[in-house]
Design a binder for these strands. Structure first.
Length: 203
DNA sequence: GGCCAGGACACCA
DNA sequence: TGGTGTCATGGC
């Protein structure tokens, strides 16, 4: 239904693999608009690559990414990720790669899965705030379940395909951003009927 | 002026 | 395991 409404998203907003990884870290609990400025700043200063970030000092990175908030913490995290990815070898073994990525300080499940799916085309499902919000509103989940539980639910009910996971999550974000931010039943929402049914069902 | 955004981690009980 | 504080900017 969302696909019919919005069409293919060809998502994540980022030109290169490195830019996708950088965006995944910078967007932690942050509006994407603020991230865009930080990325533009990094680009202007020749730091939009993991190699360059791994070599740069944390203070300078922090100055350049100030606009996206939490800049001191994110500068360290960015450098941790850059150092890890520029040295890690076997990136085709999804499970091992994911576990190794999760050990990097600053990389939680959502960030790891965003990197795996959007930068490395590996079959994982990304569960973010939009996913929890929209599907709890639809009555499909409570929203408080552990990350892996929700992720598994989507993986088991969708065809196992990187393209599908990518597109499905992208549509969730698109929908969450445009229409379903605060109001539980916005008038023009394409999922309005489904939301209403779910709410009635709960009563 | 307050609330929130595409989280993660340290610390505590 | 679960709850809470912290990190911080910019848009609405």
């Amino acid at each position: 239904m969302l696909y019919k409404e919005y069409g293919p998203q060809h998502w994540w907003p980022g030109e290169t693999q490195d830019e996708i990884v950088i965006g995944a870290v910078l967007t932690q609990n942050t509006a994407w608009k603020n991230v865009e400025r930080a990325i533009a700043n990094l680009s202007k200063n020749g730091l939009l690559s993991l190699d360059a970030i791994a070599r740069e000092d944390v203070e300078r990175i922090a100055r350049l990414i100030q606009s996206c908030g939490y800049y001191n913490i994110k500068a360290k995290r960015l450098k941790n990720v850059a150092e890890f990815l520029t040295s890690y070898k076997d990136k085709r073994n999804c499970e091992q790669f994911r576990n190794a990525l999760l050990k990097v300080n600053g990389v939680g499940k959502e960030t790891a899965d965003s990197i795996l799916l959007y930068a490395f085309d590996l079959p994982v499902f990304v569960v973010d705030a939009y996913t929890r919000r929209i599907f709890s509103r639809l009555g499909i989940i409570k929203g408080t379940e552990p990350y892996d539980e929700i992720s598994k639910m989507f993986i088991s009910s969708l065809p196992k395909s990187v393209r599908v996971y990518n597109e499905y999550h992208a549509l969730i974000v698109r929908h969450g951003k445009e229409r379903c931010r605060k109001r539980p039943l916005c008038s023009e929402c394409v999922l309005r009927d489904k939301c209403q049914n779910a709410l009635q069902h709960q009563r």
